[in-house]
Write a protein that binds this DNA or RNA. Structure first.
Lengths: 210, 210
DNA sequence: ATATGCATGTAATGGGTTACATGATTGT
DNA sequence: ACAATCATGTAACCCATTACATGCATAT
């Protein structure tokens, strides 16, 4: 019988597709066609930080080596006087192809998020309520700054059609962070409005009511 | 001379604080005081999935072993007839302490998110616009389902004061996912409204306009 | 019968970070 | 003079996932 013995990666040396998303992020940044060094790539990756975590520079270099081995990028040594040489990378047509395939065919994955502030809110019973309010307020402030940054970026880029997609993303980001700010503030209000079960005499912890 | 030779992890066998956030998630789930098996813990962790990724079960078991070695949890073997024994874990007072310290003292970190749909939107130039619209619509649908789930959970728990904090988190989640839905739909509208730069004659790709 | 849920774990591998390393240039 | 920026890379580690492994019980 012809049995499909679970075609998993590692079968034949180098497994064609199924790259980690970081690879696609790097490929994507090169998909505009210009040549970029690892250093520049890292800086560009930081622009994605609003909706995608930014890998460490060492990771970018590792990624580039991998992509080159797969034939998706090539590099060229650029000699510079009075500066260390740079190695600029360019996407190959094979790279363009796999990137487009990913764009069009990859399944729609849910966001993966690690929201440590909300995690702390969830476990609010175990902490100091005052401090929790501070944490939330602090978070709301941080978010406000991000919104300002995004508004700035949005204005800069929404003129030119060249940045059409990034502009749409910036708008998305603004909506997202505004929702975060609202949520944090609503949460604070909920904490304030809570009918406290020992208002004045406090000390619910290690007190009599064990 | 008393020199602080960079107290980094790995110095003295087991490094007091600075646990990964997953440890705190596990500790938090045990901070209610009940005994839980690794299996139950995994299921509880899945409830955090709306705002915190859920680790693999093997990771939970590994985490429990680590926490036990640190003295933050203890386990007890529970014999069951006609069923494999279970090992239930309980938080220790040392564990409660470090957890509370984390709750009150940990710095307010920004969310770390990997939004692959937005990543694809950002690189929209490299894909099929029709397909991108589909992806966005698909995402909006998935988000709608999450919202329904959250609404259900919210109604269930918002009665009892016992689930005060989780209820606040559920509300936050609803606000967040509603913003996501709106953002996805706004993005679709932007794509639709875009003044297409070659509407009828198409073929901007590998055509003459190189 | 077969699948699904309960329950626990190990092995292999991978993705990623932090710290270590080096070295020149430009700005303060 | 010192710090910051450009630029590239390695080593050590660790967090985490996937797959492998086992085995009983209940529901379909």
């Amino acid at each position: 019988m012809i049995e499909f013995n679970t075609p998993r990666r590692g079968d034949s040396g180098q497994d064609a597709d199924r790259l980690p998303s970081t690879s696609y992020a790097v490929l994507g940044m090169l998909s505009f066609g210009d040549e970029l060094s690892g250093y520049q790539l890292k800086k560009r990756a930081d622009n994605l930080r609003f909706f995608y975590w930014s890998p460490a520079h060492s990771q970018i270099y590792a990624e580039l080596r991998r992509l080159e081995k797969l034939g998706y990028v090539t590099h060229r040594e650029v000699k510079q006087m009075r500066r260390p040489d740079k190695r600029v990378y360019r996407i190959t047509s094979a790279g363009q192809e796999v990137f487009e395939t990913w764009m069009n065919e990859a399944p729609v994955e849910p966001v993966s998020l690690k929201h440590s502030v909300v995690l702390r809110l969830f476990f609010g019973h175990a902490g100091n309520p005052e401090r929790l309010r501070e944490v939330l307020a602090d978070y709301a402030d941080q978010v406000s700054e991000v919104i300002e940054d995004l508004r700035g970026i949005s204005e800069e880029i929404s003129e030119s059609d060249q940045f059409f997609y990034p502009a749409v993303v910036a708008e998305w980001g603004i909506g997202y962070y505004e929702a975060e700010r609202r949520a944090a503030m609503t949460a604070i209000r909920r904490l304030d409005d809570r009918p406290e079960r020992a208002e004045s005499q406090a000390e619910e912890k290690d007190a009599d009511t064990a």
